[in-house]
Amino acid sequence: MSKSVDFNCGVVLPASGTGERMGICTPKQFRDVLGRPLIVFTISTFHRFPWIKFIIVTVSESCKDTMLQLVTDYNLHKVTVVAGSTTRHRSIYNGIKAVPSVCSAPDVVLIHDAVRIFGEEDLIRDIALAANKHGASGVTRPLVSTVIASDSEGMLTESLDRNQYAASEMPQGFKYHVIKQAYEKSTDFDFDYGTECLLLAKKYAGVNACIVPGKPYLWKVTHKKDLYAAEAMLKEQFLQVSILSTSGQATLVDTLERELCTALRSEQVKVTSEIIPKSNSPSEHPNTFIHIHTSQPSDWSTLNPATRPCGDRLLFDHCHIHVFLLDPTQVSAQHHQLSVHFKQLAKQLQDQHFIVYAVLAQTTESSEAVSAMVKHLVFHRSTSLAGQVFLV
């Protein structure tokens, strides 16, 4: 099977859920992780692929303005927001009906959940290609628990062999005319109680889906504890740190590199002299920058990340940590100046998806102590602490 997507492919994301199982007022797709709503991470999964032509997000009327604001804030130019409905299938159908308005000749539509925030391009491409070839495609994962049934009195009646079954995951892919026909023929019972799109394609369009083996990251944020797991996994998968080397500071650079590599994969940490390295892959562009200074800059504007070339800030706010190693006699005098400047800078960058911190240390301080503070800032990434100057 060719790995090139040479047809019109887009995504429908139903996002009208209320998040009842999470037990919170805010729908879970709009809950913040690492400073942005979950749905932004999900959209970014598809938005970064050039062969994805459009993304239709269906939301409840009460969340429509919120979603439209996110489209503006994060420059989600592929996204169209439409009204969802009371059930999952009705919301998906609303998205399917909106496809012709954003793509004149759609070939394949992928359906995904708004709170499934992870997805690798190879797998998503395989699903799209299988859908284009077979009419429909799904992805599965092995069951990890045995499935049993019980009667009305709570007594065991049946146990299934889990080796003969699998968990249906997302995304799923369909030829546009297949999923359109399936929904046009669906009954009210299907719309109100159905959960499986692949079954509708088989039942009403006569198309049997090609099943693609899935990967462990294919899970959805369902409970509160999943928010913490999502944050950890996002950092593990996407954090890219660039330590900007400085002449005469090899000891600190080496310590920082060693400490960060203990918590991340070695390929996620680079020592370089360039803000944005020469790379064809946007995923290799850093989103966390550590600058080391041995004096206060003569031109304060050089500390403003918005004045430098920078990569995509959709997935992560870009974090710039400036480390000032000063003579002990200079620290007290320059602390105030740095504090004033970084507070102003943080305020200026507030809506531009940048976070800035400063670490002020004496040249007599150990590299381990400075590195520990920087490492904490790299992983904590708190926007509420942006603009702070931390003394070591």
Rank of each mutant, 00 (worst) to 15 (best):
D6T: 08
C9M: 13
V11M: 05
V12N: 02
A15D: 03
S16A: 15
R31I: 12
V33E: 05
L34I: 10
R36Q: 12
R36T: 03
R36L: 08
P37K: 08
I43P: 08
H47V: 01
P50T: 00
I56K: 05
I56V: 15
V59F: 02
S60H: 14
S62A: 15
C63Q: 15
T66P: 00
L70C: 09
V71D: 04
T72S: 15
T72H: 14
D73L: 10
Y74C: 05
N75P: 01
V79P: 11
V81A: 03
T87L: 07
I92W: 11
N94E: 15
S101G: 03
S101F: 13
S101W: 04
C103L: 06
L110F: 07
H112A: 05
H112C: 05
V115A: 04
G119A: 02
A128P: 10
L129D: 04
K133S: 14
H134P: 01
V139Q: 09
T140E: 13
L143C: 08
V144A: 02
T146Q: 15
S150P: 00
E158A: 13
D161V: 03
Q164D: 10
A166V: 10
S168Q: 14
K175A: 06
K175C: 14
K175S: 10
H177C: 04
T187L: 09
D190N: 13
Y193W: 11
Y204I: 00
A205D: 06
P213C: 00
P213G: 00
V221C: 15
V221R: 05
V221M: 07
L227W: 11
Y228L: 15
E231H: 08
E236V: 00
E236A: 14
S242M: 10
L244C: 03
S245P: 00
L252R: 09
T255C: 15
L256C: 05
Q268L: 04
V269P: 03
P277I: 00
P282M: 00
H285Q: 11
N287P: 11
T288S: 10
S295W: 03
S301G: 01
N304W: 04
T307A: 09
D312I: 01
L315N: 07
C319M: 04
H322G: 01
L325H: 05
D327C: 10
V331I: 14
A333R: 14
Q334S: 05
H335D: 03
H336C: 01
S339W: 06
S339T: 14
V340D: 08
L349Q: 07
D351F: 10
F354W: 04
V356Q: 10
T364A: 11
S366R: 06
A369E: 12
A372Y: 03
V374Y: 04
K375H: 12
H376L: 11
V378L: 06
F379C: 06
S384G: 01
V389N: 06
F390R: 06
L391Y: 09
